[in-house]
Design a protein around this nucleic acid. Structure first.
Lengths: 173, 173
DNA sequence: ATCTGATTTCAGTAATTACTGAAAGTTCAT
DNA sequence: ATGAACTTTCAGTAATTACTGAAATCAGAT
């Protein structure tokens, strides 16, 4: 019985570690991903001190990454009545997590990229040189694709869990 | 006219720089992304030396990143008859680029993550503690979602350009 | 077998990114 | 206004990741 508790903590550790590795590969700070994993599998809300304790990290590090996660909309601040401390709670619904990551990546990464592609396209609009024409054509294709991806992102971000799954099933099932 | 050439090179530089920044945000080495951008917009195949020259990087760096790009299937080696040197050429079709990135990321990142999720799920299969049950449930949901994403990746990777666009239009149009 | 023009490797170094811990700032009760 | 409990910032440092350049290796021509 106490053995089960130990086994659970071990498994949870494995999950936290792997989620951290995965995050790092996707350009997300390892610690941030670990905290996320920890909170996603936390039976209760956690305080900054608890996170520090479990992951063995400094206050500054814990603080920064917790606030970044709040910025991504992946965790939220919870206050307990009578307590002054902040506690944190993760969004656990997988579809909701996906939506929020999609929305933020679009905002932070896709939209700026689109901006550049549009500039590059515009700057070569009128060119006569074959190389200029080819470049312009390439920018156009990239822009079309990225803006399509961006629109899909918007669409997904406003879709409800059930609908999205059913729709996807219909297409890919 | 020569002014146009200069303007083109300037614009191309902007594109290379921005593609590098974007790559870095997605967890891809900046130089690798820059080389990719350079080759995507190259009117002719390029040699290692040309890449070194344009981006002002060392031979080792150019070599490593060119080979990595070959590994991702984003560029290919071309040999000119009579020449001993290797030249490189990028895949320019945007849908094809997307497919290859999707395929590689799935292989390198999604599949290993799935593996972990399955382990964690299995390790908590039989637990009686409420916390253990909750953890198991969370792993299940994650696994369902990630494996669904993985299947979609497969599906997309084998789809032809035209079909994919039409399908997507039907859904999101 | 040797030479030449190329590719590949890798030890050392540079640049970037992440983390620590202590100090400063905030908030709220008294 | 003071102080206790907590949050935020940030200069300094550690860890990680990327890059250089020279030496080793390879492949074809003679």
């Amino acid at each position: 019985m106490n053995d089960e508790r130990a086994r659970l903590e071990e498994t949870r550790d494995e999950f936290v570690t792997q989620w951290g590795i995965m995050g790092a590969q996707w350009g997300i700070n390892r610690t941030m991903a670990q905290i996320h994993a920890l909170l996603m599998t936390a039976p209760e809300v956690m305080s900054t001190d608890e996170v520090m304790e479990v992951l063995q990290i400094s206050r500054g590090n814990a603080h920064t990454n917790l606030k970044d996660l709040v910025g991504w909309g992946l965790i939220r601040i919870v206050t307990k009545k009578g307590e002054r401390k902040e506690f944190f709670e993760a969004e656990k619904d997988v579809w909701e997590i996906f939506r929020r990551v999609a929305r933020e990546r679009k905002r932070r990464e896709i939209d700026p990229a689109l901006e550049t592609l549009r500039n590059c396209k515009a700057a070569t609009e009128d060119m006569e040189l074959p190389d200029g024409k080819a470049f312009h054509e390439q920018m156009m294709q990239l822009e079309d694709f990225v803006s399509f991806a961006s629109k899909m992102g918007d669409r997904v971000a406003t879709m409800q869990h059930g609908k999205a799954i059913k729709l996807a099933m219909k297409i890919f099932g």
